[in-house]
Design a protein around this nucleic acid. Structure first.
Length: 114
DNA sequence: ACGGTGACGCTCA
DNA sequence: TTGAGCGCCACCG
């Protein structure tokens, strides 16, 4: 039986480049509406993140299917939220994927993956 | 079993 | 709008 964390990873894997999802929405998609916090916990433990790859190999990656793009998960108010490798790293990767971050926030109207 | 932890979120002042 | 406060929940020791 798949754990909550695995559900979280599966849902997160669906977020395409250039889009983001929120911890709360991931929680709902994983079937536990009030576990936004636990989602962060799960992602934090995940070792299969993009940071384990160079930004270069990332560009042509087809690895999207295996790796969990946890940098695409942000807070519901548009602020970045945490990141195991540091929020600065998170900001860089997102920017590289084409997402505009203004005053530390992302416009969810525009970038939220539905 | 129980209590602490944390990459969260909502409410209210 | 911004921040403190508090509730939440999967995990782990």
């Amino acid at each position: 039986m798949i754990s909550f964390a695995e559900k979280v990873y599966n849902v997160t894997r669906k977020i395409p480049r250039g889009k983001v999802a929120t911890y709360a929405r991931i929680a709902r998609a994983a079937g536990s509406p009030r576990s936004a916090r636990a989602v962060g916990n799960a992602l934090n433990k995940n070792t299969n993140s993009y940071t384990s790859l160079s930004l270069r190999s990332l560009a042509r990656s087809r690895a999207d299917t295996k790796l969990v793009p946890c940098h695409r998960v942000v807070r519901s108010d548009g602020s970045l939220g945490g990141f195991a490798a540091g929020t600065e790293k998170k900001r860089k990767i997102l920017t590289k994927e084409g997402i505009v971050i203004k005053d530390g926030k992302i416009d969810l109207k525009r970038y939220l993956y539905r």
